[in-house]
Measured scan of single mutants.
Amino acid sequence: NQASVVANQLIPINTALTLVMMRSEVVTPVGIPAEDIPRLVSMQVSRAVPLGTTLMPDMVKGYA
């Protein structure tokens, strides 16, 4: 089972991601792979992401 990136806190719209905002977790459906966490740092979210939400490619500007 592949771990995905999950929000560790509420991430407001247009916030630049930092390591403390993200954790890896095995979830369904699968989201952005956990190994991409270093690449996500400083990228902005395109919408508010609630705590515990799996990050999907369309939620991060410039990821897809």
Rank of each mutant, 00 (worst) to 15 (best):
A3P: 06
V5T: 11
Q44V: 12
E35M: 08
P38T: 14
T54P: 06
T18H: 06
P57N: 06
L55I: 15
P57S: 09
L55P: 01
I37A: 09
M56C: 08
S42W: 07
D58H: 06
A16D: 05
P57V: 05
N8T: 15
T28P: 02
K61F: 06
V6W: 01
P38G: 11
S4F: 03
T15S: 08
Q44K: 07
A34Y: 06
A48H: 11
D58P: 08
A3K: 06
Y63V: 04
Q9A: 14
E35P: 07
P50K: 11
M21H: 09
V27Q: 11
I13F: 08
G52M: 04
S4R: 02
L51F: 12
Q2H: 09
T15D: 04
A7E: 00
G62K: 08
E25T: 06
V30H: 09
T28F: 07
P12M: 05
M22F: 06
Q2C: 09
T53F: 10
M43T: 05
I13E: 14
T53R: 13
I13C: 05
R47Y: 10
Y63G: 05
I32F: 03
N1S: 14
V60T: 02
R23I: 11
P12S: 09
V27E: 02
T15C: 04
G31Y: 02
V20D: 14
M59V: 06
L51V: 15
I37P: 00
V5N: 01
D36N: 15
A34C: 08
Q2L: 15
I37Y: 03
I32C: 03
A34H: 15
P57K: 05
Q44E: 08
Y63I: 05
G31P: 01
T15R: 05
A16Y: 06
T18F: 03
I32S: 00
L51D: 15
A48D: 14
R23C: 05
G52H: 12
P50T: 15
P38I: 08
T53N: 12
T54E: 02
L10N: 10
L55T: 01
G52T: 02
I32Q: 01
V6Y: 01
M43P: 01
V27R: 07
L51T: 12
G52D: 07
I32K: 00
V20R: 08
Y63P: 04
V49W: 02
N14A: 09
A16L: 13
E25F: 04
I37G: 05
K61G: 07
V49Q: 02
V30M: 14
R47A: 14
P12H: 06
M22D: 02
V49T: 08
T53W: 11
M22Y: 01
R39L: 12
L51W: 12
L19Q: 10
V41F: 06
A7R: 00
G31Q: 02
L17E: 02
V6T: 08
S4H: 01
M22P: 00
L55C: 02
V49A: 07
T53K: 07
T18R: 05
N14G: 11
V27H: 03
A16S: 11
A16V: 09
I11E: 01
R47C: 04
P57M: 09
S24H: 09
P12E: 13
T28L: 05
I37W: 03
P38C: 05
M43C: 07
I32L: 05
G31V: 01
V49C: 15
K61V: 14
M59D: 15
S24I: 12
V6G: 01
V45R: 00
P29C: 04
M22Q: 00
R47S: 10
L17R: 00
M22W: 02
M22S: 01
M59T: 07
Q44D: 04
D36T: 12
A48C: 09
R23P: 02
V5A: 11
P38M: 13
A48Q: 12
T15H: 06
R47N: 15
G62N: 09
A64I: 12
D36E: 13
A64E: 12
V49E: 02
N1H: 11
P33M: 12
L40C: 04
Q2N: 13
K61M: 13
V60N: 02
G52K: 04
A7K: 01
N1Y: 15
T18C: 03
T53P: 01
M22C: 03
L10I: 14
N1E: 15
N14C: 11
N8I: 08
R39K: 13
A7G: 03
S4N: 01
A16H: 12
P33W: 12
Y63N: 04
E35D: 10
E35A: 10
I37V: 07
S46W: 08
G62C: 11
V60W: 01
